[in-house]
Design a protein around this nucleic acid. Structure first.
Lengths: 352, 352
DNA sequence: ATGAAGATTTGAACCGATTCAAAATCTATC
DNA sequence: GATAGATTTTGAATCGGTTCAAATCTTCAT
């Protein structure tokens, strides 16, 4: 029954028209006389031909109408990591509107990632650079397709990037707490280049933090110093953005004679882990301790209590990124967008 | 700087070999003498040629090494819906292992979906049929690529499907509660063909529920009747799988003289909304009311308290589905997998 | 030196469409 | 009825590779 394979040429012959006309019936129907068009479609139906095959079309046309989103992580990252999910959700929204497809590109080891990036059938890439951004950019660059990096952690201004104002965001977070009356702070950091865990001095932090995290640290310090709180008096603990390292940091912090009344977390993930630890250890949030996160992931809104955080303009980021790829209108310079402080239930005045 | 475009033919000429040899250098290097291979690669580097372009390769070779996952929903569905996310996470895991890419295919209106399905560059499809399964299958069928339907709601045995034993799962959930001593039940349903919201009689439920939901209802009733509780005494409320319709159902239920002490929810999503409503309205879970969900999404494990639920073997489902597509070894018959009762903190004996 | 077997390389066909200049056909105008 | 102009249709080139039978080159025993 199945005729092996019906291709456009077969259809054309069967319908008694040239291949060119047959092609137009599908791709530019307005060019072909209605009568002919209907006949060809009729024959197509009989033959079980369902429109031109993408592989051929694409070869000729050059565009796939899909964009790739890449990260150096297992594929499941896109569905499990809160930030990645939030970004993807917004990208998905923009793609829906423009009818663009999404291909997920990733791998743990570089060998495979290189292959995957090279073989992905897409018109361009959005790079999630939270981990291994440099490698990712390097591999993608080779492909010679438009790409844009998100959360990229490197000064190289030749790389098209959409970022956020980390310093201003962090400053806003710290200012919010200090204005509520807090004076005892602690910072939970991520992004030590050596995955350092535990207390660090400000100098160590400046030296070993990746630029995103360093900017956030600088923002915290800056706002606090405006109120006379010097960085030397604000303990900083490195974490690996996972529960166990956050737990360890908090155990140390709350074993000191003057534990913090306010916690500045460099990610919502960390902040949520912190709130969990506090709840488990009998500290009320925000009664005993206030917590501020960073990123503005959806989970922050649904937590109990809601997490006060610095929200990234993800929708705007997604819109610009997708547009940049599809229109091949990459920003000549790196773009930096503003962030907003979202106040929820996890922050309040300190117990007097 | 950019030489317009370097293609395999250019490289071949520049390196002084035939195009066939140049091709082999990349696709089947073992066929070409090392000396030649290195020279060609060297020239490739000079010319900035980064391996064969996928579009051409694919046209000839026929395989894309990617699979499409499709649903009649906006693209964001894959990242937001708990069940979809759980399924995707598992599919991603399998794909990671086999080096397969994932393309997301979806659209709200059928017109666009048809186009997207036809133009997706994939070797086959996994269909998430929670909504509009029939249409999805019909459109995919036309594409004449291997596909397999998940959560498909139709008897048509000619369609390759991996499903679960809904009746047995529901029965296990009900049995668990009844064995704890509960006697006052309520069922929160989804999947009314007309999106009905509010109380329904068993007859109405049987008539208007889609098959997945009907099977679950039958399972509940069957287990309860073994303990002498007749279906007429178990109120059933339709919901739209969203918070507002769940809230409405619970308000009605708990306004009755004999409110339920145990809730059977047809999805974890509903169950979690229910727990939220109960908390907001001063009912302790499981102290005052026990709740059982269905599906076994990750959120069920992290909720406070943990949600007792019927877990689908998602890993197994994902593994079989991906294998089926990649090996083009579709199950000749529809497969049905077993489910397991996972007991967590949301169920306990009723207050005596 | 000769010839068979094995290793490399070549060349041309092919994958399945789109595209566009040129040819063919139809319409309108005088 | 002839002709310019508009509308359709055709045919061949092209996109960027892969593949495979045939041609060429090596190697080595005879």
């Amino acid at each position: 029954m199945t005729k092996g394979h019906v291709r456009l040429a077969d259809l054309a012959k069967a319908a008694g028209v040239s291949q060119g006309t047959a092609s137009n019936v599908f791709s530019r129907p307005e060019l072909v006389r209605e009568e002919v068009r209907e006949r060809v479609l009729e024959v197509a139906r009989e033959l079980g031909y369902n429109g031109p095959d993408m592989k051929g079309r694409l070869l000729r046309a050059g565009r796939v109408n899909a964009l790739g989103v890449a990260a150096i992580e297992p594929l499941a990252y896109f569905f499990e990591d809160p930030w990645a999910r939030a970004v993807m959700t917004n990208i998905a929204g923009v793609c829906d509107a423009t009818g663009t497809g999404i291909a997920l590109v990733s791998a743990q080891n570089q060998q495979k990632l290189a292959w995957n990036i090279n073989s992905a059938l897409v018109d361009g890439f959005i790079l999630l650079c939270v981990e291994g951004g440099e490698k990712l950019v390097e591999l993608t660059r080779r492909r010679q397709l438009p790409f844009i990096a998100l959360a990229f952690d490197d000064g190289d201004a030749s790389i098209p990037t959409i970022g956020i104002d980390n310093t201003a965001g962090a400053a806003a977070a710290a200012r919010h707490l200090v204005e509520l009356g807090h004076r005892q702070f602690a910072i939970l950091a991520i992004g030590h280049s050596d995955d350092h865990v535990g207390a660090v001095t400000p100098e160590q932090a400046i030296r070993s933090l990746k630029s995103t995290s360093r900017d956030r640290a600088l923002g915290y310090w800056q706002a606090l110093s405006e109120f006379g709180i010097e960085r030397e008096n604000v303990p900083v603990h490195g974490t690996r953005n996972d529960k166990s390292s956050v737990d360890a940091a908090l155990e140390t912090l709350f074993a000191t004679p003057e534990p913090p009344t306010a916690i500045l977390a460099m990610s919502d993930r960390i902040a949520l882990f912190a709130m969990q630890w506090l709840a488990e250890n009998g500290f009320a949030v925000p009664g005993d301790v206030s917590v501020v996160g960073f990123d503005g992931v959806p989970e922050a809104a649904t937590a109990q209590p809601g997490l006060t955080t610095i929200a990234q303009p993800l929708e705007e980021i997604a819109r610009r990124a997708v547009r940049a790829i599809l229109d091949d209108a990459l920003p000549c310079a790196q773009e930096t967008l503003g962030v907003t402080l979202v106040i929820r239930g996890s922050t309040a005045r300190p117990r007097s």
